[in-house]
């Protein structure tokens, strides 16, 4: 069912997206401290439009914290996030307008799905479109059904989330985020709460999304995804990027000792 062979993934859209080569997201000197504990240590990162970047690394290395800095769910202590034309200084509270425009540009998918359990699947996907983008119920529902079909869940529209498996719920969450037409999608360990089989359905959807040219930043423990779907892999440890480069190179031939140790540990399992 799922083919993560890298050769099948070289599709024209991705090449095209790569050619645009325009930075869509830039993180500048992102630093986050809790008291004396440094969680993110002057981190810099640039994503080009259409690029898929996987962030891997041991627990507690600051991967999820970094994602939460980007959409200001948990702002950094200092540093700058630049999304398109929008530049946000993390050290000062953003204006409501900045925050809205940042969050419209950046979609996020969580480890724990975070669907609204009291709403049908369709309402879950449509409500944010109505409230954030001001779409009519009819237009929102139409878009929702398209996206639910895209993630293979057209028939679940009228169910409640509790009637869906974890993998289905995560795919709904992806549809919900996509419905707001984000420029960048952040994934925070999207398959970590799922058993391998259900995780696979989610990875397939993400793979399809990557092929379609979506810019994606994915925190993951799925080494196969990192190696074969993403263009670039970043290895983080202790709040720093310790290794970064084209996926295959980083995954197969890491340069630093710390990265070697981490990759050996995950691959030898």
């Amino acid at each position: 069912m799922m083919n993560l062979n890298p050769d099948t993934l070289k599709l024209p859209q991705r090449e095209l997206a790569g050619q645009a080569d325009k930075p869509i997201l830039r993180l500048e000197a992102i630093r986050k401290v809790y008291g004396k504990h440094v969680v993110l240590d002057d981190l810099n990162l640039t994503l080009r439009s259409g690029e898929v970047v996987a962030i891997i690394g041991p627990s507690g290395s600051g991967k999820s914290t970094l994602l939460r800095c980007i959409n200001m769910l948990g702002p950094a202590t200092s540093g700058r996030v630049v999304v398109g034309d929008l530049a946000i200084d993390e050290s000062i509270p953003p204006t409501a307008q900045q925050l809205t425009s940042l969050r419209r540009s950046v979609g996020m998918v969580f480890q724990s799905f975070n669907l609204f359990p009291h709403m049908s699947v369709l309402r879950n996907v449509s409500l944010p479109q109505e409230r954030v983008l001001g779409r009519s119920r009819k237009d929102a529902d139409k878009r929702s059904r398209e996206l639910l079909a895209r993630v293979g869940l057209a028939e679940k529209a009228d169910q409640y989330p509790a009637r869906c498996s974890g993998g289905q719920q995560q795919r709904i969450a992806i549809a919900r985020a996509l419905a707001l037409d984000p420029q960048i999608m952040l994934f925070d360990e999207p398959t970590s709460a799922l058993d391998p089989e259900l995780g696979l359905e989610v990875l397939l959807v993400m793979q399809e999304l990557a092929r379609s040219g979506m810019t994606m930043l994915v925190v993951t423990h799925e080494m196969n995804f990192a190696e074969t779907v993403s263009d670039r892999v970043i290895i983080m440890a202790d709040g720093k990027i310790i290794e970064e480069g084209p996926s295959k190179e980083v995954m197969r031939d890491p340069q630093t000792d710390r990265a070697k140790r981490f990759l050996k540990a995950v691959k030898d399992r």
């Binding site: 769910l73 609204f116 954030v132």
Partner: peptide, 30 residues
């Protein structure tokens, strides 16, 4: 109401008042 739902709501750019009205209050009152 789980904090994750509230975070998801604000990550999507929903205003606090909308999050209260559509996510927190209906579930909290239930």
């Amino acid at each position: 109401v789980p904090i994750g739902e509230i975070e998801a709501s604000s990550a999507m750019g929903m205003m606090r008042v909308d999050t209260l009205r559509f996510v927190i209050i209906p579930q909290g009152l239930r």
